[in-house]
Write a protein that binds this DNA or RNA. Structure first.
Length: 199
DNA sequence: GCGACAG
DNA sequence: ATCTTGTCGC
């Protein structure tokens, strides 16, 4: 069970979680990858009806439990978790990633395709370049380019990792625009919904 | 009051 | 999030 540290990046287990929908039903998928080789070690699912509607700012209330239950099925417990939602880049600093970090006691990194709140200046087009996202003069996240010339990604950690550490880990896990854990979790949860349509 | 608004 | 194929480009 590797510990997470930036100074010494050793083997560890990294996970990602995402939810897809079909007829009011949500299917959360969590994937477990080895680090740094990024091998798929396993995946888990949890199906259920969200107990809350989608209201910007309250995504944690809608998908939080579904995500948590899917992640808890992973073995071993991950050392880091990527979430499809904001962490600190939230109006009340309580995005889905923030919620899951507390709920699962695992450091999280929130990733979103669009900024929920805050202002920023677009970073250069090269992979790895980033700028900060500010809200009322406070740094709440980073705007990161994970691939040359591709749309940026908004990165914000839970309450343990710093914004810089979150950016670093996101780059280490990104082969395409989105980090592998999230890309795969999204892919599998969506596939699960597809199968349920035909059935 | 009006518009914006993660997934 | 979801409804949806091919297509242009690195």
């Amino acid at each position: 069970m590797g510990k997470l540290s930036q100074a010494q990046i050793k083997e560890s287990h990294v996970a990602g979680v995402d939810v897809s929908y079909f007829d009011e039903q949500g299917i959360a998928c969590a994937v477990l990858l080895s680090f740094p080789d990024l091998r798929l070690l396993g995946k888990s699912f949890y199906c259920g009806t969200p107990g809350f509607p989608y209201i910007p700012g309250f995504l944690a209330l809608r998908e939080g439990i579904l995500c948590a239950l899917a992640v808890r099925k992973l073995d071993p417990k991950p050392d880091l978790l990527f979430v499809d939602g904001a962490g600190s880049a939230h109006p009340y600093n309580y995005g889905l990633a923030t919620f899951l970090e507390e709920e699962l006691d695992v450091p999280t990194i929130g990733i979103t395709k669009k900024p929920f709140v805050g202002e920023f200046t677009p970073p250069p087009i090269e992979r790895g370049s980033f700028s900060y996202l500010y809200l009322n003069g406070v740094k709440i996240g980073a705007v990161l380019r994970t691939r040359d010339g591709v749309r940026e990604l908004f990165v914000s950690p839970g309450k343990r990792l710093s914004i810089e550490e979150a950016v670093r880990w996101t780059l280490l896990l990104s082969q395409y625009r989105k980090p592998e854990p999230i890309r795969l979790a999204h892919q599998y949860s969506r596939l699960a919904c597809q199968n349920r349509r035909i059935a």
